[in-house]
Simulated scan of single mutants.
Amino acid sequence: MSTHAPLDALTFDLDDTLWDNRPVMEHAENGHYAWLDEALAAWHGAHLDREGRYGERFPLAAYQARRLELAQRHPLRRGDFTWIREQTLAELLEEYGLPRSAARMWAAAAIDRFLDLRHRLSPYPEVEALLDDLRGRYRLAAITNGNADLTRLPLAAHFPVRIAAGEMLAPKPDARPFLAALARLGSAPSRALHVGDSWREDVLPASRLGMRVAWIDVHDDPERSLPAGVYRLRHVRELPGLLARLEAAAQGVFTPS
């Protein structure tokens, strides 16, 4: 890996890199499941009298456990989280006693609700201005294992290249999402830097390809040794400082760290 070649492309993870994803997912997880229970109770009183409430028969923990089981049954789809969720709901709703057509209808409606809640997120305050500046100097791409759809977010304007790794059946740490992004950006690994929070899904695959990596160490793991070309940041707001140092190094100019 060349750690001094000038950079022309940046690739970004999304969840927990550009925003805090934990509260977003907690709200979406609880919200869409509660919505489904309430909507089913209001829709089918006779079924409710006979079978009890859906949420009592299949509490949230049962839904979560079934998702893991379904992912094991369909390993090629394990990273397609939206598909996993919808298929799991359809299975549970059939077991609840709904005809298959109704089960699929309600599963799709619940997923629509989930995706609506999942996109009610706020990037870190610095992100909009940061990306606006960077896209004037680098080609930008997003690579995510999650089901955040950038076309539903204002941040889409900054990312002409968007890779949904799970939907392409190659979730990170698979190298293919990174290679696809670089191909669409017209860049090479030696001239690209990846920004992400996961050691396994961001740092390792990007580094192995020869990309440089800005690791957003959200869990504060100072004992982990860093390979050449991997740089530890505490927050994405520190990225401009790192890029300035790398640009200076590419020009043979010394700057203090």
Rank of each mutant, 00 (worst) to 15 (best):
L185D: 07
L185W: 09
K172C: 14
P173A: 11
A170Q: 14
A129G: 05
F159T: 00
L155V: 02
R139T: 09
D174W: 02
M168K: 00
A180N: 13
A183T: 12
R162E: 13
L169E: 15
H119V: 07
E167N: 06
L150C: 05
A181K: 06
A110Y: 03
I143C: 10
L117A: 07
E126K: 00
P160N: 02
E128I: 06
D116K: 10
G146K: 05
F178Q: 06
A165I: 02
H158N: 00
L185C: 01
A165T: 01
V161E: 07
D133W: 08
A110R: 01
L115C: 09
M168G: 00
S122L: 15
G136Q: 13
L121I: 14
A165Y: 08
P154S: 06
H158R: 04
R120Q: 15
D132W: 04
Y138L: 15
P173Q: 12
R139F: 13
D174P: 00
A108Y: 10
A170I: 08
V161T: 06
A108N: 07
A180I: 15
L115T: 03
L153Q: 09
D133S: 14
A109I: 05
P125N: 07
A142W: 11
A164P: 01
P177M: 09
D112C: 06
F159R: 02
I163K: 01
L150M: 13
E126C: 14
G136P: 10
A164W: 09
A183H: 10
D174K: 01
A141E: 14
F114K: 04
R162N: 07
R120A: 12
